[in-house]
Simulated scan of single mutants.
Amino acid sequence: MTSVVIYTREYCGFCSRAKALLASKGIIFVEHDATYSSELRQEMISKANGRTTFPQIFINGTHVGGCDDLHALERDGRLDAMLEH
């Protein structure tokens, strides 16, 4: 089963777009809302190799980046293969 984790914050359009793409594919994901949690934000930054922007997305433990990165994987036809594992 595919594991997808996304770190988000409130009022984030990029977060909404990324979640909408995943939802459109029927993907169930774990969302960590770091809006009010400095601990979750630090966890995200550590796991995302220093990236601080929202969202940060992980598929099967692999950091794939943010919303633009997720949509680029979709455009390139590589996202479905990642989600099948």
Rank of each mutant, 00 (worst) to 15 (best):
M1S: 13
T2H: 05
S3I: 01
S3C: 00
S3G: 00
Y7N: 11
Y7V: 06
R9P: 11
R9M: 15
R9W: 11
R9A: 15
R9S: 15
E10K: 14
Y11A: 15
Y11R: 13
C12I: 14
G13I: 11
F14L: 14
F14S: 10
F14G: 03
F14Q: 14
C15F: 05
S16G: 11
R17T: 07
A18I: 02
A18H: 00
A20D: 13
L21T: 04
L22I: 02
A23Y: 06
A23D: 08
S24Y: 07
S24I: 08
S24H: 10
S24M: 07
I27S: 05
I27C: 08
F29K: 01
F29H: 03
F29S: 01
F29A: 01
V30F: 03
E31S: 05
E31Y: 06
H32L: 14
D33Q: 01
T35K: 00
T35I: 03
T35S: 14
Y36K: 11
Y36D: 12
S37Q: 07
S38Y: 11
E39T: 15
E39W: 12
E39C: 12
R41I: 07
R41H: 09
R41F: 13
Q42S: 13
Q42E: 14
Q42N: 13
M44G: 07
I45V: 14
I45T: 06
S46K: 14
K47C: 10
K47W: 08
A48V: 12
N49H: 15
G50I: 10
R51F: 10
R51N: 10
T52N: 12
T52I: 09
T52C: 07
T52M: 14
T53P: 08
T53Y: 03
F54L: 07
F54A: 08
P55L: 06
P55R: 06
P55V: 06
P55G: 11
I57N: 02
I57C: 05
I57F: 01
F58R: 06
F58Y: 09
F58A: 10
I59W: 09
N60L: 09
T62G: 08
T62Y: 12
T62E: 14
H63M: 05
H63C: 08
V64L: 07
V64G: 04
G65Y: 04
H71A: 02
H71G: 01
H71P: 05
H71W: 10
A72K: 14
A72P: 04
A72Y: 08
L73W: 00
E74F: 12
E74D: 15
R75H: 11
D76C: 10
G77P: 04
G77K: 08
G77Y: 09
R78I: 02
L79R: 00
L79K: 02
D80E: 12
D80K: 12
A81G: 03
A81L: 04
M82D: 03
M82E: 04
L83C: 00
L83E: 00
E84G: 09
E84T: 10
H85I: 03
